[in-house]
Simulated assay, not measured.
Amino acid sequence: MSSSPTRGSKADEWIERLRAASTRDEVLGAVWDLRDDAYDFPGEWQRVSAVRLLHFLADQLEQVADGTVTWERFGRLIGNAVADARSGTPSNWDG
C-alpha cells in the first residue's frame, strides 16, 4: 500500500462516481468527496479556478438539448465539467 496517492487517482475515482450517480444522495456524496480531494490535494486542483469550472459546467448544460436534467444526468454533467476543468479539454457528451 502506497503512503501517498498517485497523481489524480482519488479525483478520477470521485469523478467516475459522480458520472455514475443516479440519485440526489449519490450526487451530493461524490461532490463532497471531490471537494475534500481538492482541499486535501490542492496541487492536483491548481488548474481548476471557479471561472474555469463554471465555464465547463455551462458548456455541459448547454448540451442538454431537451432541457431535462435528472439527478442522473446532473451528476454526469457535473462530473464532465470537473474532468474538463481539470484537463482543460471540453467533452461533447451530455450524458
Rank of each mutant, 00 (worst) to 15 (best):
D66Y: 07
E62I: 05
D33S: 14
G43A: 05
D33R: 07
S87F: 01
R19I: 07
G75S: 12
G79S: 06
D36Y: 08
L53R: 04
A30S: 10
F74H: 11
A83R: 05
F56Y: 15
T68L: 11
L77R: 11
Y39I: 15
A58G: 08
G67H: 06
D40Y: 08
S22Y: 09
G43E: 13
G8W: 10
L28Q: 11
L34K: 03
Q46Y: 08
G67N: 06
S4C: 08
D33G: 06
S2D: 13
S2N: 12
E13D: 10
D12T: 12
S87G: 07
L18I: 09
D36R: 11
L61T: 02
L57G: 02
F56S: 10
L57E: 07
F74M: 14
I78G: 00
W32C: 04
F56E: 13
R7Y: 15
V27L: 05
D12C: 00
E13H: 10
G88H: 02
P42F: 06
A85Q: 01
W71P: 07
D25V: 14
Q46C: 03
D12R: 14
M1L: 11
F41E: 05
S9Q: 15
N80I: 02
H55L: 13
D25M: 13
N80K: 06
K10Y: 12
V31D: 03
P90V: 03
L34A: 08
Q60E: 15
T6D: 13
A11Q: 08
L34F: 08
D84K: 02
I78P: 00
W71R: 12
L34G: 04
A85N: 08
S9T: 09
R73H: 06
R73G: 06
E26S: 08
R86A: 03
G88Y: 02
A85S: 12
A83W: 03
S9Y: 08
A58T: 14
T70Y: 12
F74I: 01
L28W: 04
R76F: 13
L28H: 05
V31C: 10
S22M: 12
L77C: 10
L18D: 04
G8L: 08
R17E: 08
N80H: 14
A30H: 02
N80D: 05
P5I: 13
V27T: 11
G67F: 02
R52G: 11
E26L: 11
T70Q: 11
R47Q: 15
A11I: 03
I78C: 09
W32G: 01
D33H: 07
A38H: 05
A30W: 00
A11E: 12
G8M: 06
V82F: 01
R35S: 11
V51K: 15
Y39T: 14
T6H: 15
T23C: 12
L61Y: 04
G43R: 10
L61F: 10
G67A: 10
F56N: 13
L57D: 01
G29H: 01
E26K: 07
V69W: 07
R76K: 14
A50W: 02
